[in-house]
Each structure stands twice: as C-alpha cells, then as structure tokens.
Amino acid sequence: MDVSSASVLAAALAIGLAAIGPGIGQGNASGSAVEGIARQPEAEGKIRGTLLLTLAFMESLTIYGLVIALVLLFANPFR
C-alpha cells in the first residue's frame, strides 16, 4: 500500500471514528434537553444554555478528528 492510499484510508478512519462518540453524546444530550424543556418550559433558557456549552465541548472532539483527516488529505507531510 502506497502512502497516498494509506493517507486516504487513515483520513476516513480518523473522521469516522472521531464522529461516533460525540455523535452518540450529542444525540443523548439533545434528546434529554428537549425532554427537559417540555417538562419545564420556564427553564428553557438555562437548559438551552447548558446544551450549547455541552454541544460545543463535544463537537470539538469531532473537529480534532476532522483536522487530522484534512491534514492527511490536503497537507500530508509524508507525501
């Protein structure tokens, strides 16, 4: 396997694996937040604020994988 093929495979694995955990986490968090808003509409702002922070923290994990994938595809130091 040459370096180009290995890089494409590694990029696919990086973004794919990096998206699994945060994806599950974001789904759970969003579902629970919507449920919480339905139960307590008066706390909507607080719940959405907490959701914003947690989603931003979780999404950064996907972004790390994304950066690795983009570097491998467009600015590969080993090619």
Binding site: P41, E42, E44, G45, K46, R48, G49, L52
Partner: peptide, 9 residues
C-alpha cells in the same frame, strides 16, 4: 416564562 427564560440564553 419561556420567553423570559430565553433572554438568559
């Protein structure tokens, strides 16, 4: 209440 709470957001 909800719109007041959204101001916080």
């Amino acid at each position: 209440k909800s719109s007041g709470s959204m101001d916080e957001y």
